[in-house]
Computed example of a mutant assay.
Amino acid sequence: MSRYKIEAFVIRTNRITESSRVLTLYSREMGKVKCVAKGVGRPKSKLGGKVELFNLIEGDLYKKETTELGVLSGAGLLEDFKGISGDARKYGFASAWCEVLDRTSHSEEPHPETFELTFNYFKVLRSAKTESAGLLFWSALLKFLTLEGYGPALDACISCGKPVARDRLLITLQRGGLIGHECVELDEPVVQVTPEALDLLRAMMELPLSKLDEIAIDKRTGKQVAEVILSLASYHLGLPRNLKSFRFIEDLTDSGRLGA
Rank of each mutant, 00 (worst) to 15 (best):
L178V: 13
G83R: 05
L243Q: 03
L61T: 06
L125I: 07
L136E: 02
T172P: 00
A197Q: 06
A165N: 14
L47S: 10
R12Y: 03
G49I: 03
A203P: 00
L232V: 10
E108M: 14
E116D: 15
L135P: 01
S139M: 03
I229S: 02
L142R: 06
F54S: 01
H181M: 05
G83D: 12
L135F: 06
E65T: 10
I57H: 03
T24I: 11
K64D: 14
L69N: 09
V36S: 05
I217P: 06
K64S: 15
L142E: 09
L186Y: 14
L186T: 14
D80H: 13
G86P: 00
P112T: 11
D187F: 15
Y150C: 03
H236R: 09
I158K: 01
E18P: 04
K143S: 09
S95V: 02
Y91V: 00
A133H: 08
G238C: 11
R12G: 12
G176Q: 06
W138A: 05
K32G: 07
I11M: 10
R168F: 09
V124Q: 03
A156H: 06
P195N: 06
R89G: 04
V193M: 12
C35F: 09
T118M: 10
L186G: 00
R89S: 14
E29H: 09
C157T: 03
A75S: 07
T17C: 03
K162V: 06
E131Q: 10
G161I: 11
L173M: 06
H181G: 11
I11W: 00
G31P: 08
K244Q: 11
A226D: 02
K50P: 01
V36N: 02
F81Q: 02
A88M: 13
R220T: 05
I84V: 15
G39I: 05
R220E: 15
A260W: 11
C98N: 15
R166N: 12
W138E: 03
P43C: 06
W138G: 05
S127M: 08
T118S: 14
A153P: 00
S107P: 04
G222Y: 09
L173A: 08
E7I: 07
G222P: 12
H106Q: 15
L69G: 09
Y150V: 00
L125T: 05
L135A: 06
K63D: 00
A94M: 13
M1I: 13
L232T: 09
I249K: 01
E109C: 02
D213F: 04
G74Q: 02
T221K: 13
L209F: 06
K34W: 08
S45L: 07
A37S: 13
E58I: 01
T66N: 12
L53I: 07
T146Y: 10
S85I: 09
T221A: 10
E65Y: 07
Y121A: 05
